[in-house]
Amino acid sequence: MECSIMQERQTLQITCPDCGCNQMSRPDDFHFDTNFVDVFCGDCGREIFKDDVISQATNTVKKQIDDMFRNTFKGGGFKLK
């Protein structure tokens, strides 16, 4: 399942928190903002909640920001933990 986030419409590949599968089943009337119900992992059947997607997106953005800072300060004597 892919979700568009932020105003730039970036695409995020969502994976099941339990098995790592990226194939999701969802109803035809699915909408991320208004109708995030009945979304399930296509492999293990775990229900996927909106909070799962938000958590994955947050972790992805944090990693991108960390990478950006590392590249910006590379060779300058600064280190990020």
Rank of each mutant, 00 (worst) to 15 (best):
residue 22 N to K: 06
residue 5 I to A: 11
residue 27 P to V: 01
residue 75 G to S: 06
residue 48 I to T: 01
residue 74 K to L: 11
residue 40 F to N: 14
residue 19 C to V: 05
residue 11 T to N: 12
residue 44 C to L: 01
residue 80 L to N: 08
residue 67 D to H: 09
residue 25 S to V: 13
residue 8 E to Y: 10
residue 71 N to G: 14
residue 65 I to P: 06
residue 67 D to Y: 03
residue 57 A to D: 00
residue 31 H to L: 02
residue 48 I to E: 00
residue 3 C to A: 04
residue 50 K to S: 02
residue 20 G to T: 07
residue 15 T to P: 03
residue 35 N to W: 05
residue 9 R to T: 09
residue 14 I to P: 10
residue 63 K to Y: 08
residue 41 C to R: 06
residue 10 Q to G: 08
residue 79 K to Y: 03
residue 23 Q to D: 14
residue 5 I to F: 13
residue 48 I to H: 00
residue 52 D to G: 11
residue 36 F to Y: 07
residue 10 Q to T: 07
residue 14 I to H: 06
residue 34 T to D: 09
residue 61 V to T: 09
residue 77 G to C: 11
residue 43 D to N: 10
residue 68 M to L: 12
residue 57 A to Q: 02
residue 45 G to V: 00
residue 38 D to R: 03
residue 42 G to W: 04
residue 72 T to L: 14
residue 11 T to C: 07
residue 25 S to K: 13
residue 11 T to P: 08
residue 64 Q to T: 04
residue 33 D to G: 00
residue 18 D to M: 00
residue 67 D to A: 02
residue 6 M to R: 09
residue 66 D to N: 12
residue 72 T to S: 07
residue 13 Q to C: 15
residue 38 D to F: 01
residue 18 D to F: 03
residue 76 G to H: 11
residue 14 I to Q: 04
residue 65 I to E: 07
residue 14 I to A: 07
residue 55 S to P: 04
residue 17 P to F: 08
residue 16 C to K: 11
residue 47 E to R: 11
residue 14 I to Y: 09
residue 71 N to D: 15
residue 63 K to P: 15
residue 21 C to A: 09
residue 57 A to V: 05
residue 47 E to H: 05
residue 55 S to C: 08
residue 55 S to E: 13
residue 64 Q to H: 05
residue 4 S to H: 12
residue 4 S to F: 15
residue 25 S to W: 15
residue 47 E to M: 08
residue 24 M to P: 00
residue 33 D to F: 01
residue 77 G to A: 08
residue 26 R to H: 14
residue 13 Q to D: 10
residue 64 Q to A: 15
residue 74 K to I: 10
residue 76 G to C: 07
residue 65 I to W: 05
residue 40 F to L: 12
residue 23 Q to R: 13
residue 59 N to Q: 12
residue 37 V to L: 03
residue 9 R to E: 11
residue 45 G to L: 00
residue 56 Q to T: 03
residue 70 R to P: 13
residue 1 M to W: 00
residue 68 M to I: 09
residue 23 Q to G: 11
residue 61 V to F: 15
residue 23 Q to P: 03
residue 30 F to S: 07
residue 25 S to I: 13
residue 16 C to H: 14
residue 72 T to C: 09
residue 59 N to F: 13
residue 8 E to V: 06
residue 62 K to F: 04
residue 73 F to N: 04
residue 30 F to E: 02
residue 18 D to R: 12
residue 14 I to R: 10
residue 59 N to H: 08
residue 42 G to S: 12
residue 64 Q to C: 13
residue 66 D to F: 14
residue 44 C to R: 02
residue 30 F to T: 00
residue 75 G to H: 09
residue 68 M to N: 06
residue 81 K to C: 08
residue 7 Q to K: 12
residue 75 G to Y: 02
residue 22 N to H: 14
residue 77 G to H: 09
residue 30 F to R: 01
residue 60 T to K: 11
residue 62 K to Y: 03
residue 21 C to Y: 02
residue 74 K to F: 05
residue 3 C to M: 13
residue 55 S to H: 12
residue 36 F to E: 03
residue 54 I to W: 10
residue 16 C to G: 12
residue 37 V to W: 06
residue 24 M to F: 01
residue 28 D to T: 14
residue 72 T to E: 07
residue 56 Q to Y: 03
residue 1 M to N: 02
residue 29 D to E: 06
residue 81 K to Y: 09
residue 39 V to H: 04
residue 61 V to S: 03
residue 48 I to K: 00
residue 9 R to N: 11
residue 74 K to R: 05
residue 27 P to E: 04
residue 9 R to V: 01
